[in-house]
């Protein structure tokens, strides 16, 4: 299945916060229409990796990024329009962030920024994204209610709908199920499996079994380093190069 050019190509990526090394020389490729899982214990650099992909270092004067990140062949550290990049790359954070506006406005926010003004067009985008995020049926009668009134699981699906509203090429999910109940988690996982027909997904998770259920290939991060990348099934069936990977997926340390 991985026969075309990589969607995302990372070479020798290092991330530091002040003196603290968060990622050290990571290289990996993510191919179109796959779900790429990243597993690893806390503080292994998973979130820093996602932050670098969206040029989030610009929020944080402490954060420095070195190395090459090629998105569709373009080095994103050298592009001129970081806002356009962020519109192509959707992010879902670990804790749902419903912006302090209505459900409708939450989803219509990015399209409006992109210059779409027609009500009918926005209506269509909002409905489509909420349906894809498996939230439409629950909120279609109260689109004008505040997004922050929704339950945690609903808010997380709202943030997914919001991330989809900008038609991203790449969707980054950072431990999306932390604040979500198991039933909702399963529903979102089903949504992700459908979405990968159209877009590429990078899924950071600390639930090893979630990576196993969803990811086509999985990378194991440990102590700021990439230990190895492999087809998910191989990783879990014990065909691993590194003993540490086996220990981690079998729950023997962490």
């Amino acid at each position: 299945m991985v026969d075309n050019a990589p969607k995302l190509s990372v070479r020798n990526l290092s991330v530091r916060y002040g003196d603290k090394q968060a990622l050290n020389g990571i290289s990996l490729d993510v191919f179109p229409n796959e779900i790429f899982g990243i597993i690893g214990p806390a503080n292994s650099g998973k979130t820093s990796f996602l932050r670098a992909l969206n040029r989030m270092e610009e929020f944080d004067p402490n954060m420095t990024v070195e190395g090459d990140i090629l998105f569709e062949g373009q080095d994103i550290t050298a592009i001129r329009n970081v806002y356009a990049l962020r519109r192509k790359v959707g992010v879902v954070f670990p804790l749902p962030v419903g912006l302090p506006m209505s459900i409708y406005e939450n989803v219509a926010f990015a399209p409006k920024l992109g210059g779409i003004k027609k009500k009918a067009e926005l209506d269509e985008i909002v409905e489509r994204c909420l349906i894809r995020a498996a939230l439409w049926d629950e909120v279609k009668d109260r689109l004008n209610a505040l997004g922050s009134l929704l339950s945690g699981g609903q808010q997380q699906r709202l943030t997914i709908a919001r991330a989809l509203s900008q038609n991203p090429e790449l969707l980054l999910l950072d431990e999306f199920s932390i604040a979500v109940d198991p039933v909702t988690t399963m529903r979102i996982e089903d949504v992700l499996k459908e979405l990968k027909e159209e877009i590429t997904i990078v899924l950071v998770t600390n639930l090893v079994q979630q990576a196993r259920r969803l990811a086509d290939r999985t990378a194991f991060f440990l102590e700021s380093e990439l230990v190895e990348t492999a087809e998910t099934e191989e990783l879990f069936s014990g065909v691993v190069k590194d003993q540490r990977t086996r220990d981690y997926v079998e729950g023997r340390f962490g």
């Binding site: 989030m56 806002y83 962020r86 959707g90 954070f93 912006l99 920024l113 991330a163 900008q166």
Partner: peptide
Amino acid sequence: EAAEAMGA
């Protein structure tokens, strides 16, 4: 962060 991540 959420708004900036969406390209605002």
